[in-house]
């Protein structure tokens, strides 16, 4: 019992479970976090199912990392972030690998748990009418000008040269 208590205490000292790292921390100081348990949050920007597992790419403040998790956990993700979608916000607890032995040296996180905190949603991208009208006007100007200049050039080519005496 005493041994178990010491082991738990040691684990608590070594693993900062309570604090959530940012992806910037993990990427900027890979050696310090290599092989350690980490916890971070981010937006899902990609899901690729590979058999019983899946790669979930998680984005946080301009950076992204691949999370290797169970396919079942990835199946809970509803939205993948892109131009027209805000991806689900997930919290990942897992082991960070600077150069993963299992995945050809990739930098990744092997998830112990992946939890969807916030469901994503569709982003409306309305057409900017002012810009649309401006673009149509410029396009029409381009067509008219091109045709007009082309026509003038054609007429100039037709013109008979002035006779020299």
């Amino acid at each position: 019992m005493k041994r178990v208590a010491v082991l738990i205490l040691l684990l608590l000292l070594l693993v900062p479970l309570g604090r959530a790292e940012t992806l910037r921390d993990l990427i900027d100081d890979p050696v310090a976090y290599d092989g350690r348990q980490v916890k971070f949050r981010g937006e899902v920007i990609g899901v690729m199912v590979r058999g019983e597992h899946a790669w979930v790419n998680v984005f946080d403040n301009g950076l992204a990392i691949g999370v290797w998790c169970q396919a079942e956990e990835a199946g809970l993700i509803s939205f993948v972030g892109d131009y027209t979608h805000r991806g689900d916000i997930v919290e990942v607890v897992g082991i960070y690998h600077m150069a993963c032995t299992e995945h050809g040296g990739d930098t990744d996180i092997h998830a112990l748990s992946l939890q969807v905190l916030e469901k994503g949603y569709q982003i409306e991208r309305p057409l900017n009418m002012t810009l649309l009208l401006l673009s149509v006007a410029i396009s029409m100007a381009a067509v008219i000008l091109s045709y007009y200049l082309w026509h003038i050039r054609k007429e100039m080519k037709k013109r008979v040269p002035w006779p020299f005496y």
């Binding site: 401006l134 410029i138 396009s139 100007a141 381009a142």
Partner: peptide, 20 residues
């Protein structure tokens, strides 16, 4: 992505105007 169409129209039209 219809909202992006004006960007390309403007860029393309300006190129044709300058070219002409």
């Amino acid at each position: 992505e219809l909202d992006t169409i004006p960007y390309f129209l403007i860029g393309s039209a300006l190129s044709f105007i300058l070219g002409s």
